[in-house]
């Protein structure tokens, strides 16, 4: 065998082995790579119990309430299948809105209320000028009324 093709085989074999190793490591770590759990995960008992974790989903439309102290907020996180009520003391990020994505960190109380210590807004990958967003909203409304 020529030395060049021998080297090529060694390098190729090494790369294949490494890729396999990394693939194994990744699949083993898959559980730990989850940044947040969905409300459905939580309802199915997949979320860690008795310690802090994150729930991600949409802020349910119409669920956002401010308490009289002006500091505590209540809202619900939903993945459309399951919904979890959340309470949080603190300031919300600018992009936090009903109907938009959010990730909350905290722990689940025995009453089924999630007490958040941190709230992050999750935005999507769509970028458009306000006029286009407005037009899209109008089109969505029209489509909704037609389907009804």
């Amino acid at each position: 065998m020529k030395p060049r093709s021998k080297r090529m085989m060694l390098v190729g074999g090494g790369v294949v082995l490494l890729v396999a190793a990394v693939a194994l490591v990744l699949s083993a770590f898959q559980q730990n790579m989850v940044f947040f759990h969905t409300p459905s995960d939580v309802m199915e008992g997949k979320a860690p119990r008795g310690k802090t974790f994150r729930i991600g989903g949409l802020v349910e439309s119409g669920s956002l309430q401010r308490e009289a102290d002006g500091f505590t907020v209540r809202f619900a996180i939903t993945d459309t299948a399951q919904t979890i009520p959340v309470s949080y003391k603190g300031t919300l990020p600018d992009l936090f809105k009903e109907g938009k994505g959010a990730v909350v960190q905290g722990s689940l109380g025995p009453d089924g209320q999630f007490r958040a210590t941190e709230v992050l807004a999750k935005h999507d990958e769509n970028y458009m000028p306000p006029e286009a967003a407005h037009a899209l909203e109008q089109a969505q409304k029209t489509a909704d009324t037609v389907s009804q």
Binding site: F35, T38, G56, K122, D124, N126, Y127, M128
Partner: peptide, 27 residues
């Protein structure tokens, strides 16, 4: 792993706006 992380796992980071497989979601 970096490129597909937003598809493979739940991430705070949003998905790709520009990719080879779909029309860009940008003005």
């Amino acid at each position: 792993v970096i490129y597909f992380s937003v598809k493979w796992w739940n991430t705070l980071h949003q998905g790709a706006s520009v990719s080879l497989t779909k029309a860009p979601s940008m003005a």
